[in-house]
Amino acid sequence: MADEFTPSWEDVAQRYGRKIYNFAYRLTGNPDDAADLVQEVLLRVRKGLSGYRPGSFEGWLWRITRNAFLDGVRRKSRRPETTLPEGDHHALGSSPSPDEVLASVRLSDNVQAALLKLPYAFREAVVLCDVVGLTYDEIADATDIPVGTVRSRIHRGRKMLRGLLTWPV
């Protein structure tokens, strides 16, 4: 990671806001919670940037993101996690055929619903890997667990999803 500089708060928002939003959306299946998390993370980043020392910026950012998320979960005493996701209809482009769109909506709803059924530790590992796109080392850094555990969680998470998803989708 070539993070030799300390980015501004605006840089962080522009560069990572969308990733943070997607991270939270996939963990909660809820756009309001995702928006709340982005606001909270950016607030913490703003406060924390002065104390940030050049190093693994992504590790630092995702630690903040994860902690903000977990704090939010604790604070809110969550609604049941089996809440049906709202779907991703607003994210679809306009070019594919209606059938393709429907299939894609079904698939992503299906995957989202399955994700919400995973125990948190596995859901988090899978989302950080497959949605956010972090390496195992970065996930270990962000979640403060050994990289061997990260590897195990990602695999077991995917294995559980395999059982939860209805194929063919």
Partner: peptide, 12 residues
């Protein structure tokens, strides 16, 4: 499964 996860739309 990995492919399905990675195909989740990148939400705006």
């Amino acid at each position: 499964v990995r492919k399905a996860l990675r195909m989740l739309p990148d939400l705006e």
